[in-house]
Simulated scan of single mutants.
Amino acid sequence: MKILIKGAGDLATGIAYEFWLAGHQVLMTDIEIPLAVRRTVSFSRAVYEGEAQVEQAKGVLVRNLEEALRTMQAGGIAVIVDEQAKIREEYRPDILIDSIMAKRNLGTRIGDAPVVIGIGPGFTAGLDCHYVIETQRGPSLGQVIREGSAIPNTGIPGEIAGYTIERLIRASASGVIEPQVRIGDLVKKGQLVAVTGGVPVYAQMSGIVRGMLQEGVQVEKGLKIGDIDAREKKEYCVTISDKARKIGRGAMEAAFGKD
């Protein structure tokens, strides 16, 4: 089956990985300057590095459909800069998945493919897509919604090891980001972890840096630029999260009617 996934961040990558493991052709679209915080487990990294290895799969930056087809035929996942996903018209996917995670629909329509799946809030099954996948942590995570919408965004991240809002590293000011730590580093509460727009950003908790935007990106004040994990396990920095896997399996269930 031909799969087109809009977005190539960590949750989109978890979805892509499940379809890739099942042997399907996967083409992903992203913006020119991706803002995926969990870069080490995001195929969006291919946009500025050329390639992105995530577990067993490799994402490869391509410029057109011809290169995408070659990459997929060689066993890779194709990633293309295409903010409007216009390649859909040439590629003609069997399944289109919108995993941009904008918390609103930026243009996906139910007629874009034989099966259209919306990930998280902002979509309504039966209106702008065939299925919606729940993304909020809890008993419903990964659930296939066949009518209606996902739980609205609360603005509060899911709890990991007892922490929620403290996990986030946010830009203190608008401007260029200058990371002061790397993904995989252990940090203490109150430690300088980045500078944005010339203003210091401090950790709100102790733990391991699980995500951090790439140096030199222009950010807005308050934007999520990093993530800290109290579990302090380095493998969590380089492996797809349990959340992304569950969402990916939910998308598989929606697409094919089974896990």
Rank of each mutant, 00 (worst) to 15 (best):
D229I: 12
Q180E: 06
G197Q: 04
V193P: 02
G158D: 03
G190V: 07
V144G: 08
E220Y: 08
G142D: 11
G158M: 13
Q204P: 12
V238F: 05
A230M: 13
A171Y: 01
S172Y: 02
S206M: 12
V144D: 04
I151C: 10
E178D: 15
V195I: 14
K234D: 13
R146C: 14
G190E: 13
E178A: 03
P152A: 06
P200C: 05
V217C: 11
V201L: 00
Q214T: 09
A173C: 04
T196H: 01
S206Y: 14
S149A: 15
S174E: 11
L192T: 14
Q214S: 05
G158T: 11
P152Y: 08
S174A: 12
E232V: 13
N153P: 08
N153C: 15
A173D: 03
S172R: 00
E235D: 10
P157H: 02
G184T: 14
Y236K: 06
S149C: 12
G197M: 06
G162T: 07
R231N: 11
K234Y: 14
V219T: 08
G148R: 09
E166K: 04
S174P: 06
I177T: 07
E147C: 00
Y163R: 01
G216C: 05
L186R: 00
K233Q: 13
I151E: 13
M212G: 04
Q180M: 01
K224V: 05
